[in-house]
Nucleic acid binder design. Sequence first.
RNA 1: UGACCUAUGGUGUAAUGGUAGCACAACAGAUUUUGGUUCUGUUUGUCUAGGUUCGAAUCCUGGUAGGUCAA
Length: 390
Amino acid sequence: MKIAIGLSGGVDSSVAAYLLKKQGHELVAMFMQNWHDTTGTLHGDCPWKDDLAIAELVAKKLDIPFHYVDLSADYSKKVVDYMFSEYEQGRTPNPDVMCNREIKFDAFLKAAVDLGVDYVATGHYCRKGEAQRDGKTYYQLLAGVDGNKDQSYFLCQLSQEQLAKALFPIGDLLKPEVRRIAHEQGLPTADKKDSQGICFVGKIDLPVFLQQKLAAKEGNIVEIKSGIYEKLAKPESNDLEGLSTPYRYYPNNGKKVGTHNGAHFYTIGQRKGIGVGGHIEPLFVIATDIATNTVYVGEGHDHPGLNRKGLFIKSTEIHWVRPDRAMMVGEERSYLVRVRYRQALQEAKLYMREEGLYIIFEELQRGITAGQFAAWYDGEELLGSGVIAR
RNA sequence: UGACCUAUGGUGUAAUGGUAGCACAACAGAUUUUGGUUCUGUUUGUCUAGGUUCGAAUCCUGGUAGGUCAA
């Protein structure tokens, strides 16, 4: 079997490469470069140069041919433009989910197939399974065995076609085991720190990064006291619509407590960067309004505006990794759901309706944010996902 | 205009005349392949000019600023 391994210059993909090599597969290593710019980058002069050099060392060490592909045009268009566009519209995108769907398992996968490979392997902490249904084989996206590092969430937008070509060699290892193997094999990445931030772009100061394209614009920060909710209480707060719709605020619902330099630089649940003190408990962003350029904040973790019972996904933005298990309109099912990476799975009930999917949680959820992805699981299998509309 | 009250880090507040503390904010580090969260640590202050006292945020006097009541 001929396999391409995407080497990032990190320890996970290095060990993945080693494992495939040991299994006797014909391997080619590929390093993809997706970003050159370092504007807004925090620790970075040129992190990708180091990564490239290290990836090359790993390939040499394992004695596998090394290829370099530049996908920065695709990345810029499919990931970075999407990012700016979402922020501009007041939503909070998830660039890494998009990067996996559009780059690693699309542009990159195609480049690998052009080299004549059967599969593309990555260093993701997740597993691929197979299920039979009506005489057909379906690929399953399963959580990584290491519950602490499970990255299935970032792959929640993959299709059957993409999954068919994918391999995840380290999915049933724990991170410490991966480190140990790297040490035993003397891989140059053995002690390399795990990467953080937007993959390929790196750890950035987001407002600085965004200000490359989005203009700063001064506006008001308005504090909403938890007392007003009794008056705002929605009449039909127990139907799907009510449970999955956030409160709508107006500047006169609260008091101006400060100014910000652009509502689109803030996201719900955010604590740092509000710059308003003098409270007993920290302030969190509970809503932003691009139209009036207002950031609404509330005091304390338990503020009623910060925690919600449900969310809504438009029908056009529902994605089933397992199309054979898609819900019919009118159907209701109980699944485990997460709305961000590394969040513990939450019990929830899904209601499929004509207009879209309603997800109502057992417990209140903090910081549900439009533009982020909700992913639902049946046990350890990720069945589907979608963009949170509200 | 008269009477009274208040003045402490960037903000909100503590401190029987005896080492100015806490919270929030800010900053830094840790955690984290999104945004964000969380954890740890650090910086910064007694409105001003005098006086009493061994010693003043604290007591006294003037100034300045803000507030309340009266007109």
